[in-house]
Each structure stands twice: as C-alpha cells, then as structure tokens.
Amino acid sequence: MRRMTYAEAIRDAMRIKMKEDPDVFILGEDVGKFGGCFGVTGTLYDEFGEDRVRDTPISESAIVGCAVGAAATGLRPIAELMFIDFVTVGMDQLINQAAKMRYMFGGKITVPMVVRLPVGAGFQAAAQHSQSLEAWLTHVPGLKVVYPSTPQDAFGLMLSSIEDDNPVAFIEHKMLYGVSGDVDDEVKKIPLGAADIKREGKDVTVIATGKMVHEALAAAEELAKEGLEVEVVDPRTLYPLDKKTIFDSIRKTNKAVVVTEEIKRGGYAGEISAMISEEIFDSLDAPVVRLGALNAPIPFSTKLEQYMIPNSGDIIKGIKKLV
C-alpha cells in the first residue's frame, strides 16, 4: 500500500502510462514548469520534457481541438483544462468534434483522448471557477465521463481512461486534490463502468459522486450511531453507468437518495433518479430523494457558498425523509 493524495494518484497514473507508451502526452495551460494550476502535473515536465508535457497559450478551443486532431492521427493526448468552467470555450471541439467523429465517420476514425476537468465549489472561487458541469457531458453520446472520489479510484480510473480508445472526460474535484488515501502497490486498472460500494448498509442507499461521496460517508457514520445502516454507492464513472450495482443496492434497501454537487435542475442526479423510478419502481418504498446544489450560480461569500452546496447534514435530512 502507498499513501498518496488524489492529485498524486492522478499524476502517478499519468506517469506510468507516459513511461509505457510514447504516444501519451499532456497539453494544457501551465502544465509544464509551473506544474499545473492545482499542481497535478507537478514534476512531470522535469521527468518527460517539454515535448510531452506541453504548455499551451490560454486557448481552450485550441487545446481541446489540437488534442482531437492528435488523437485522430495516432497519439493519446491528455488535455488539462484548469477549470471545468472553461470547457465552454472548448465545448465545440469536445461535443461536436471529439464525441461525434467516430460516429459521423462510420467508425473509421477513433479519438483516444482524455480531457481533465476540475470541478467543484469550496474555496470561494465564485461563479466561473466552481461549477460541477458533468451533466453537460453525460448528455452527449460518444463521450465517457469519469469521476473518482478517492486516490485509489483516481489512480485506477486514470490508467483505464488513458488506455480507452474513446474520448474520456475525466472529472476531478478540486477540494479532493489534497485528500490522502491508500493506493495499491500493484498497478491495477479500474474498468470504466464499475461502481463501488464505499460503505455497506441495509437500510438506505445513498448514491453519491465526487466530494459528495465523502459527505455521504460522514452522514452514514453519524446515522450509524442511531442504528441506521446506510449503504453508500459511488458510480465512479457516470457514463458508462453501472446500473446493476446501484439497482442491486436499492433492491436490498428499498430506499434511495441521490446526491451530487451539481445545480439540481437538469443535473445527472436527475437521470439516475429517473432510471431508478423507471426500471425498479417496485423495489422502492418511497419516491427517490434527490439532493443537489441550489438553482443559483455559485456565490463568492463563504457563508453563502457553504449554504448552497449539500453537506453531510443535508444528506442526513434527506435520508430521514425516507426512514
């Protein structure tokens, strides 16, 4: 076992794949000597040089588009956007090009690329640097969407994402970068499309993503004191989604809470909730409880920001609606 942070785990997975495959390279703003906006690429520039850890101008459209062109011609780029909020600038390249090329061209061109997208609120970066926009991406056929919550998952999922022959949106929560955890010594991939039960329980299922996994675990710990056994399911990849693990859990507990950090309106939590209601309605004792951020831009004020994002207390309240 190795102890490492979420950021170190992502970096180590990239390092391993870069050593293995000369076609893997990184591009993005300040990923070189500077080490990345959140320090994720760190020392990779010193280890691999400027050709493989490429600083780009502040040109998100060119970063994503260049990755698409490089991927379509045989390389395996890892593009870093500083914040998922900036994906708007490169959105055409991701949605209309990367995601659709294979289909539009009848399967004759593949686009094996990873776009790293830091999400999340928590350090007063306000409305344009704090969003959780995963639902924009899960909506688009052709993209895979990955969202780890722990160093182990970040490590194993990054290995798989780089190896994947499809464009992968790799979502990272900024507030988790410094969180430490155990990572297997063995270099073991985690397949895309495999959920993980982060805590077992028989009374209520909480499906949570990213930082909300940790909030859900805290809620479960608290409720355990009252004798309530909460099961926490982390999908880990939003698409492909491991419906089986989610449904099996609900078939056991008959109660489901879905919690994500997204703005609640139109969030992916809605999609998960709808799947549960459509496909295993008979297993439910009560309607699915869905928790998300308020339908507001992310505010600057610490007090307001903290209020509008779900926390373990909100999750406890959500669970208590069902028991």
Partner: peptide, 16 residues
C-alpha cells in the same frame, strides 16, 4: 473547427 484539428494532426506528424 477543422483549423484546430489540423493543428493536432500537424503536432502528431512533428511529434512522431
């Protein structure tokens, strides 16, 4: 949109 993709293809040729 093809302009960025062309840059990626050019990078690929140079890289390899």
């Amino acid at each position: 949109a093809g302009q960025n993709i062309a840059v990626g293809a050019g990078l690929s040729a140079k890289y390899k």
